[in-house]
Write a protein that binds this DNA or RNA. Structure first.
Length: 668
DNA sequence: GTAGGGTTAG
């Protein structure tokens, strides 16, 4: 009996020590104590409840320290488990990303006579389901929350919001949110970031505005949630307003994420001057700061400045990461900086980052944009994992280079390799079928897309419509178009169908659709105007075209472009109204380009107008001296009018500048 | 011990 008392004392001591270690989350001390307990050899034989408590606390201490192997081993050996211990274990698994194991612990808590989950448990479990996007499990968990009566717990509600947002269930999240009696700042923040993550930036901004109107105090998480949405929507004014909140509350001083979000917002709104002002005020910068800065300059087309910032970053003692590199690679692609792209590729290899998903994808994209799809395929071939993004990059790379057959081949290869296609895959692939313009193949891919259940997506339907119009199958295109609900018809799909009709000479239909679009409340943009004007010029609808052109000039947000002037010059020119076309060119708000003069010259050929033809040709010879077509066209006018001598002179002129590509007979 | 947050992206 005396002996037992002695045994218990060290255990009691252990317990009090464990309390301290748990609080301090000290793994070293926990391990030392564990060793001491093992060495004494008392625990396995004692079997007392005190011993069980020590073991349980030891498991808890390991769980709190994040040491999964020991926590799990001890946990498995326990005859009884308490909710706090289970919770700690679930939390631990969540923290190290092992959400499935977290759920397994939760399942072990269920069942009669087991360990009933409490409100804490549910917050962790929601987190695990959300991270895994397990909607069905999430629903079941929500049911259990109801049954256990935790549905009015503010923490659990917030966790449910996050769960639904992570599963893309905005409506379900909204329902929980609307029914909450007590919304904390976390609830609002979860809604804002949730909407944005599900690409509903507009809704995110709306919730933020509602939050401000409700008088809820925003915190740093609020601003970092709403700022990306401001940047995405280019809502500079709202972004600036958020900036004033940050200044008033001093949120930027203690939190680098806030300044980074501000900087990024300005960069996305094209205000690098403001972004520079933000970075100047920061007393510490991290890799996110510099990446946002570099990416900002890349987005705004200033590669020079992006590279300068890359240097500044290194002077600042910050090392680039895959995000930084992928921004720079994207700049290389859009500016055809193959040499620099290769250097970055080399750097990635040396840093052992070449198989990083971002870098791998960016490399494939960069080489393709630099017209080296062969190297893109090389990069892809070295990739081992079955990841979708690099394959998508190769598909769009092929399409970008007009390699439609190769894109389709690559897609088939992708399916054979069991790489999971996603929406972006289909979006990248469809233009290949538009290039091929083969109805049979179009119907095949349409069938595939339909079977895969992707025809609910407007973007995909738009792609299919484009394919059918390019194949000349306007009925199929229109059928797809009609099936889109009225409020989901966006500017892109309208532009595509209008262009489709225009392309095949159905000018009236195109104009009608255009009017229908405006009537439905969708505002035309530069692209839509190009499509409809093009349709008019192809179908010879002079008055309609001019009306629309004037409508566009009155339509403030749309600024006329070269394309629009080219269409109108073409339109007037074909109709024989050459002087008007020339007058329009002279009245253009910017220097006419080769396309505009080309349209006039083309019209002059049709109507055999030498005076204006010579003027147009003179400009064209200056703008694109290498283009043999222009010489040929002018010579054609001379020949048509029997001015053989002048035609001959043009031929000499071509010879003199070394242009031999045009066959001699085309000059007469 | 609970929930929300910054740079990329086909």
């Amino acid at each position: 009996m005396n002996g037992r008392k002695h045994l218990l004392e060290p255990l009691a001591q252990c317990r009090s020590l464990l309390q301290r270690f748990k609080a301090a989350r000290s793994l070293t001390n926990t391990k030392l104590l564990h060793a001491r307990i093992v060495v004494t050899g008392l625990l396995p034989t004692s079997g007392s409840s005190a011993a069980a408590k020590v073991l349980s606390n030891l498991a808890l201490a390991y769980a709190l320290c994040g040491h999964a192997p020991h926590a799990a081993a001890l946990f498995d050996g326990l005859p009884e488990r308490s909710p706090p211990l289970c919770n700690a274990l679930i939390r631990m698994y969540n923290l190290c990303g092992r959400h499935r194991e977290a759920l397994r612990v939760f399942v072990g808590m269920l069942g009669p006579g087991r360990c009933p989950p409490d409100n804490f448990t549910y917050t962790f479990v929601c987190k695990a389901c959300g991270e895994l996007s397990l909607l069905d499990v999430g629903f079941a968990v929500h049911g259990k929350v109801f049954a256990a009566g935790f549905d009015s717990d503010a923490f659990v509600q917030n966790a449910l919001l996050a769960l639904y947002m992570n599963c893309g269930q905005m409506a379900a999240a909204r329902k929980v949110f609307d029914e909450m009696q007590e919304r904390t700042v976390v609830s609002w923040n979860t809604m804002i970031s949730g909407y944005f993550k599900n690409s509903y930036a507009g809704e995110a901004v709306m919730i933020f505005k509602l939050m401000m109107n409700t008088g809820v105090e925003p915190d740093s998480a609020t601003v970092v949630s709403v700022l990306p949405a401001c940047g995405n929507l280019k809502e500079l004014d709202l972004g600036k307003y958020v900036h004033t909140i940050v200044e008033e509350k001093g949120l930027g001083n203690k939190n680098i994420a806030v300044s980074n979000a501000l900087l990024d917002m300005y960069a996305k709104c094209g205000r690098m001057d403001e972004a520079e002002a933000v970075i100047r005020e920061m007393d510490k910068r991290d890799v996110v700061t510099w990446s946002a800065m570099i990416n900002g300059y890349v987005l705004n087309g200033d590669v020079r400045k992006a590279l300068d910032n890359c240097l500044l970053m290194q002077f600042d003692g910050v090392k680039p990461n895959p995000v930084t590199i992928s921004s720079l690679l994207s700049a290389c692609g859009s500016s055809f900086l193959l040499k620099l792209g290769r250097c970055l590729h080399g750097w990635s290899v040396r840093q052992k980052l070449e198989s990083d998903l971002l870098i791998e994808t960016a490399l494939i994209d960069m080489y393709a944009k630099c017209k080296r799809v062969d190297v893109s395929f090389h990069v892809l071939a070295r990739a081992l994992q079955k990841r979708t993004a690099p394959w998508n990059a190769i598909l769009s790379g092929c399409v970008h280079n007009g390699l439609a057959k190769e894109a389709i081949q690559a897609f088939k290869h992708m399916l054979i390799e069991e790489v999971e296609p996603n929406l972006a895959t289909v979006n990248s692939l469809l233009p290949a079928y538009a290039i091929l313009a083969d109805v049979q193949q179009a119907m095949n891919i349409h069938g595939y897309v339909a079977r895969s259940g992707w025809v609910i997506n407007v973007e995909i339907i738009t792609g299919l419509i484009d394919v059918y119009t390019k194949c000349g199958h306007l009925e199929s295109a229109h059928r797809l178009f009609n099936d889109i609900p009225r409020n989901e018809k966006d500017i892109v799909v309208w532009s595509v169908i209008i262009a489709g009709y225009g392309m095949h000479g159905h000018g009236e239909a195109a104009v009608l659709l255009f009017k229908e679009m405006v009537h439905s409340g969708v505002h035309p943009n530069e692209v839509t105007f190009t499509s409809v004007l093009h349709a008019c010029s192809h179908a010879g609808l002079v008055e309609e075209g001019l009306d629309l052109f004037n409508f566009m000039l009155d339509n403030n947000p749309v600024t006329p472009h070269f394309d629009h002037y080219t269409c109108i010059v073409d339109l007037l020119g074909r109709a024989g109204r050459l002087q008007e076309a020339y007058d329009l060119i002279k009245a253009m708000p910017f220097k006419p380009n080769h396309a505009v003069w080309g349209a006039l010259l083309g019209a002059c050929v049709i109507h055999e107008n030498v005076e204006l033809g010579e003027i147009a040709a003179k400009w064209l010879f200056e703008l694109e001296p290498e283009n043999t077509g222009n010489y040929v066209l002018l010579a054609k006018i001379y020949s048509a009018l029997g001015r053989w001598k002048d035609a001959e002179d043009i031929r000499h002129m071509m010879k003199k500048i070394g242009l031999r590509k045009a066959p001699a007979h085309s000059l007469v």
